[in-house]
Design a protein around this nucleic acid. Structure first.
Lengths: 228, 228
DNA sequence: ACAGAAACGAGAGCAGTGCTCTTGACAGTG
DNA sequence: CACTGTCAAGAGCACTGCTCTCGTTTCTGT
């Protein structure tokens, strides 16, 4: 539909991409909340008001960057080496997520740090945001099919409202037992809690550098959800 | 030593506290990075430059707020009801931390969200920051003494660099086995990952509201470190 | 008790920000 | 060719953190 019809449209798409690239560069150096439209326009040799032809506001630019970041992280996680062994695959996903986060700390902070004040994330971000959890769920679903997922005996089956909330995940991975699905959410939060602590400097003084701790946690979390 | 010697010193301490209170109010409404010295000064009926007599920079004010937030969270966690049963106490600490975070989301974001751009946390913050982990370690140490801590059989003992890093924790809780100490760091990161996801809106669409999920996770994490 | 030092609030000013509005130039279509 | 919509440019608004100077108040050493 919009595959570069007129010269105008092509130029517009190109410049939009250039703006995002410049914004990402500035993001990497000064951080998210210090991102300045004027600085971006200066970098591109244009005037600040011209940017508003491409992004209606600073928030809209941020939204585009957030979606791009989620997509980049999702792509990095999905590109993790998959050798077939569920535990190894699980650990590879963890490592890929960590590698991407360490390589793009500001973009990581953009999506998993504190929300930007006055900024409301639009619905458009939730689909790219769910790529990593979906990847983990798919991995568990396949492991279950191949008999490599053994529900831990001490994993309590959810009841009440928790069981109801788990239904959303059951629809995505129907063969994975609800008790494991709850644990999946637990380890999902653990993964990003661990990464945030490492990147935001909370581990300094204890588990920093975090390579070995991360490796141990990955493996223990794989066992925690029942992978073997 | 500095218990209000001269009138000047008393006035200074009072005004310093007033500034922080006004800053906290503004923090709660507009967020951390939108915190404006001019707005604070306006609120207090003084001129912006006068604030610089009390805080050398915006960063210094932020540091004071960060330390206060860590201390408030630490105090809230330490004030959790302690009935003697280790599992119940553990869950009570979790609940107290969550309650404080939900009651003070902006202050939570200030200390556990993305670091503020261009802001370097000084060494002064690490001691208040470690109150919650120290509390958990103390709980485990006491549970161990009363035989309520059973090292999980599948918890791997750390080796290599990880074992060395664990030494810091061994010094704090000498009776707790290293394997449990590593798991303590894991659950510590899980707790704040879970809280960040809840507060920053990452759970919307799955485990939100998170009350039951949080309760289940607290209990499962207590079991994960070996409490019984 | 009193002079000097230190601390203080007020105000002006600098360089920067996001964003709006108007103006004039250009490209695409009839 | 003329019309229409898109574009970059620039001025301007209200705001920010921060610095400097000013006259005043408060503390302190003698």
């Amino acid at each position: 539909m919009n595959a570069g019809r007129t010269a105008r449209e092509r130029a517009r798409a190109e410049l939009t991409e250039e703006i995002k690239t410049a914004a990402r560069q500035q993001l990497a150096t000064v951080g998210a909340e210090a991102l300045s439209l004027r600085a971006i326009s200066r970098e591109l040799g244009m005037v600040s008001s011209a940017l508003y032809r491409y992004f209606a506001s600073r928030d809209e630019l941020l939204t585009a960057l957030i979606i791009d970041a989620y997509d980049a992280l999702g792509a990095a996680a999905e590109a993790a080496p998959s050798g077939g062994d569920p535990v190894d695959d699980w650990i590879a996903v963890y490592a890929a997520v960590r590698d991407w986060a360490r390589a793009n700390p500001q973009e990581y902070a953009l999506i998993y740090g504190s929300p930007i004040s006055g900024y409301q994330a639009p619905q458009t971000t939730v689909q790219p945001a769910s790529r990593v959890p979906l990847l983990l769920l798919g991995l568990l679903q396949r492991a279950q099919a191949s008999g490599r997922l053994v529900t831990p005996p001490d994993a309590p089956s959810p009841s009440g409202a928790l069981a109801q909330q788990t239904e959303v995940l059951v629809a995505l991975a129907p063969d994975v037992p609800p008790a494991v699905l709850v644990r999946t959410v637990i380890v999902w939060t653990q993964l990003f809690g661990m990464l945030s602590f490492e990147l935001f400097g909370q581990l300094v003084g204890s588990m920093d550098p975090a390579d070995e701790f991360f490796a141990s946690a990955s493996r223990q979390m794989a066992a925690f959800v029942g992978l073997s």
